[in-house]
Design a protein around this nucleic acid. Structure first.
Lengths: 195, 195
DNA sequence: ATTATCTATAGATCTATAGATAATGC
DNA sequence: ATTATCTATAGATCTATAGATAATGC
C-alpha cells in the first residue's frame, strides 16, 4: 500500500493536527499514539515512519497549537485597534474558550505540564512563546518598546492564570467570577496605563 | 507484619506527604502508586488498605499541598503588613520557588492538569481554592470587600500564570524576565490602587 | 496473663495498556 | 502503511501472616 509523497505529507499533517487537538483535550499522556493514528485514519505502526518518538510529536503538536491560536489572536486584536487588549481579553476569557480546551491556548491547557517535558519540547514551545510575546507587544499600550513588552508579558500571564483557575473550579459560579474578574482587571489596568 | 494504630496513621500521612511532593514534581501520572509507597517505606499492595484508588490520593494530596503552601503564604503576608502583596509576589515569583516545584504552589505545577481530573479531585481542590481566595482577600488592597476579592483573584491569576510561563521557558534569560516583569507589575498595580 | 480475633502489610499476581519494533505487503 | 508482536509498566486484586487489639479469665 504505497502512497504518494503528497499523501505522506497529508498524513503527517493529519497526525499533527489530531495531536494538537487531543493533547490539549486529554493531556500529553492522556491520548496514546495508537488512538492518535486512528483519529488520523491510519494504523498504529505507521507512526514511526513519520516521527522518531511520541516526544517528537509532542513538540511539533505544541508548536502547531500555539501558532494557530496566535494567528487567531492577531486577527482579534487587529479588528479592535482602539482597545486590542480589552477585546482580546474578552475573547480569551470567554466561556467558549473555557469549554473548548482542544482548540484553545496551549499554555492554559498544558502550561503546567511543559515544565516537566524534555528539553526538546520546551525549546519548540519557547520559540512560539517568544513569537507570542512579540505579537502581544505590538498591540500593547505604552510609550516605549520596553514598556509594551512588559505589558505583554504580564497580560499573557494574567490571562493564562485566569483561565487555568477558572477551569479548575467545577462550580460554574466561581469559575465565571474568575473569568469576569480577570477580564475587568485588564480593562482597568489598560485604561490606567493609557492615561 | 503490622503496626499499631498510631503507626497506621503515620503511614497514611507519609503516603500523602510523598504524593503531595512527587505529584508536584512529576505530575499525577508521572509517579506510580508503587513508587509512592516505596518512598513512604511501604510496599505496593498495602496502598489499597489506606485508599480506595489512586484518584482518591490525588485529591487528598492536592488538598494537602495547597493547604501547606497557603499557610506559608499567610505567614509571608503577615510579616509585611504594609505591602503584603508585593512581599508575597516577590516570594512567589522567586527563583527558589521556580526551581522547587515539589514544595511550591499546586496551581503552578498542576493547574492545567486539574481541568482534566475527575470531579472528586476538582471538588477537593476547589475547597482549598476558595480558602486561598479568602486568604488573599484579607490582605488585598481596596476599600470594599468586593474590591479586595477582585484584587485577590486577579493577583492569584497573575502569579500562577507568571510562574507557569517562566517554568516553561528553558532559557533562563527569558524566564527571569518573566518573573521580574510580573513581579514589577504587581508593585505598579498595587500602588496605583492604593492612591 | 491468656486466648481469640482483627487487620494492615508483604509479596505475588492479574489485566490492561503503553510506546516501540519487526515482518509483511504493495 | 498494515499487521502482529514485544517489553515494560501501570493500577488494582488476592492470600497468607505478623502482630496489634479486644475479650476473657484469674
Amino acid at each position: 500500500m504505497k502512497v504518494s509523497k503528497q499523501k505522506v505529507a497529508e498524513h503527517r499533517e493529519q497526525i499533527i493536527a489530531a495531536a494538537a487537538k487531543r493533547f490539549r483535550e486529554n493531556g500529553f499522556d492522556g491520548i496514546s499514539v495508537a488512538d492518535l493514528m486512528k483519529e488520523a485514519g491510519l494504523t498504529h505502526g505507521g507512526f514511526y515512519g513519520h516521527f522518531s518518538s511520541k516526544e517528537e510529536l509532542v513538540g511539533l503538536a505544541s508548536q502547531r497549537a500555539l501558532r494557530e491560536t496566535a494567528q487567531k489572536w492577531e486577527k482579534v486584536m487587529g479588528e479592535f485597534p482602539d482597545n486590542p487588549f480589552e477585546a482580546f481579553a474578552k475573547y480569551y476569557l470567554s466561556p467558549r474558550h473555557q469549554s473548548h480546551p482542544e482548540a484553545g491556548c496551549l499554555f492554559a491547557t498544558l502550561g503546567s505540564d511543559l515544565a516537566r517535558q524534555p528539553l526538546s519540547v520546551k525549546e519548540a514551545v519557547m520559540k512560539e512563546q517568544r513569537a507570542i510575546v512579540d505579537l502581544l507587544s505590538r498591540f500593547a499600550p505604552g510609550r516605549t518598546k520596553s514598556v509594551r513588552r512588559k505589558q505583554a508579558i504580564s497580560f499573557l500571564a494574567l490571562l493564562v492564570g485566569g483561565m487555568i483557575l477558572a477551569r479548575s473550579a467545577p462550580d460554574g459560579v466561581l469559575s465565571e467570577e474568575i473569568l469576569k474578574t480577570v477580564s475587568a482587571s485588564v480593562t482597568n489596568s489598560v485604561r490606567s496605563d493609557a492615561s
